[in-house]
Computed example of a mutant assay.
Amino acid sequence: MDATQNPKAEIGILLYRDCQQAMVHGMTDLIAIAGQFSGQHGGPPLRVSHWRMQADGSFARCHDTHDGRPGAPDIWLVPGRLSGVPDAEEAAPYARWLLDRHAQGATLASNCGGAFLLAATGLLDGRPATTHWWFAEPFRARFPAVKLDCDRIVIDDGDLITAGGLMAWTDLGLRLVDRLLGPTVMLDTAKFLLVDTAGREQKHFARFMPRMTHGDEPILKVQHWLAAREAKSVTTAEMAAQAALEERTFQRRFKAATGMTPIEYVQHLRIATAREHLEFTRRTIDQIAWSVGYEDSAAFRKLFHRLVGLSPGDYRTRFAAPSAEAA
């Protein structure tokens, strides 16, 4: 990078214990590459700095891609962590720092579990955000006021930007490049890095992870019963009977325990099984629809697309295992 050029903006990455190094260094490289392409078009570079909390609780830069006079980052990024998420006590000093930076006009962004640090500021309350689908339930439990949408890869809400799981930092990085340097440089960067810029959603990848730790034993009994029979040919009345509850009471308690109606829950179970068939067998889509309890193939395809974001055929094209066996 030509140090005589003034950067268009500075992106500060906030480091903390066990944060995802792939994002830290990958984002640094992505932004540097974007700056090089910007220069080829006569535009300015971007600058990336890494920041770490000091023993006295202050924060200082520990890496900088520009040799000029230090400034203040315009955008702050919080990476995720491979080993769980920060608890409230660990998040507190980082949240205070981010809250102060936001008050001074900076944009805040997170990737994966970094959303827990960002949400700890309170700034996400009442606003849309995403994180890794694996962390959806603990995030909702800890930050119920946030409008969490784990189907999406990136949610750009102006001054707050959140990205989904792990490798979603590539999508986040390209979004920032597009915002700061424009679509031409963004596309040049994506092509160079072999990153697909077509719209992706986390629900293409997410697995159904039902709530099982709610403590309602009759509902848990029904959940185990449904899993054992793969939710085939089952009615709400039959589920209520398994729980030994009156049907309306069962529906109310089931929704409170699982976050879904009984019918929605059964649909997710069936589609989860269908995904496995699409990945590991060569059965036709009609055969798979029938095997998971749908006599109407068109209805199955419509539901699959709504829950997964892809048609069954497109899902198989993307995710089928090479060793998939014939029916």
Results as ranks from 00 to 15, higher is better:
Ala60Pro: 08
Ala119Thr: 06
Asp171Phe: 02
Leu15Ile: 02
Glu264Asn: 15
Arg282Asn: 12
Asp149Pro: 04
Thr235Gln: 02
Glu279His: 04
Arg52Leu: 15
Gly12Ala: 11
Glu246Asn: 12
Ala106Asp: 08
Glu201Gln: 15
Ala141Phe: 00
Pro86Gly: 08
Leu278Val: 09
Ala95Lys: 11
Asp74Lys: 07
Glu325Ile: 12
Asp87Lys: 09
Tyr94Ile: 08
Arg211Leu: 15
Ala289His: 03
Phe192Ser: 10
Ala198Asn: 10
Val146Ser: 09
Thr121Tyr: 12
Ala321Asn: 11
Ile285Val: 15
Ser38Lys: 12
Ser83Gln: 13
Leu226Cys: 08
Thr261Asp: 11
Asp67Gly: 15
Glu201Pro: 00
Ala119Met: 08
Gly164Thr: 03
Leu220Val: 05
Asp18Val: 01
Met23Gly: 00
Phe135Arg: 02
Trp76His: 09
Pro7Gln: 05
Glu276Gln: 15
Thr131Leu: 06
Thr4Glu: 07
Gly26Tyr: 07
Leu77Pro: 02
Val85Ala: 12
Val308Leu: 05
Gly173Ser: 01
Arg306Trp: 01
Ile33Lys: 13
Ser291Gln: 13
Thr130Gly: 01
Val308Cys: 10
Ala91Leu: 05
Gly199Leu: 15
Gly122Arg: 13
Pro73Thr: 09
Pro93His: 13
Phe319Gly: 04
Glu238Lys: 06
Ala136Met: 10
Met239Tyr: 13
Cys150Phe: 05
Ile271Tyr: 03
Gly80Val: 06
Glu90Thr: 13
Ala237Tyr: 12
Thr213Ile: 06
Thr235His: 04
Leu193Ser: 10
Ser291Gly: 05
Val146Ile: 08
Gly126Gln: 06
Gln5Gly: 07
Pro79Phe: 00
Ser311Trp: 02
Tyr315Ser: 05
Thr170His: 12
Ala231Met: 02
Ala88Pro: 00
Arg253Ala: 02
Arg52Phe: 11
Ala32Lys: 02
Asp149Thr: 04
Arg69Ile: 00
Ala163Val: 01
Arg282Val: 05
Ile31Ser: 06
Asp196Arg: 08
Pro183Lys: 04
Leu194Trp: 05
Ala320His: 01
Thr184Arg: 10
Phe319Asp: 00
Gln5Tyr: 01
Arg140Ile: 12
Ala9Gln: 10
Tyr294Ile: 04
Met167Ser: 06
Ile31Lys: 11
Thr235Cys: 02
Ser297His: 12
His66Thr: 02
Met1Glu: 06
Val195Asp: 11
Val146Leu: 11
Leu180Asn: 05
Met212Leu: 14
Cys150Arg: 03
Ala326Gly: 07
Thr281His: 01
Ala136Cys: 08
Leu30Pro: 01
Asp64Leu: 07
Gly164Met: 04
Ala55Thr: 14
Ala206Met: 14
Thr258Trp: 10
Ala190Pro: 05
His214Gly: 14
Trp51Phe: 13
Ile155Pro: 00
Phe300Ser: 06
Pro128Asp: 08
Ala92Asn: 11
Val85Met: 09
Ala103Cys: 09
Ser233Asp: 15
Val85Asn: 08
His63Asn: 11
Gly165Ala: 03
Met53Ala: 13
Leu172Met: 12
Glu90Gln: 14
Ala289Val: 03
Gly126Cys: 07
His214Tyr: 11
Val222Ser: 04
Leu118Cys: 09
Leu303Phe: 07
Val78Cys: 04
Arg253Cys: 03
His277Cys: 03
Trp97Phe: 15
Ile33Gly: 10
Gly313Tyr: 03
Arg275Cys: 15
Ala115Lys: 00
Gln251Asn: 13
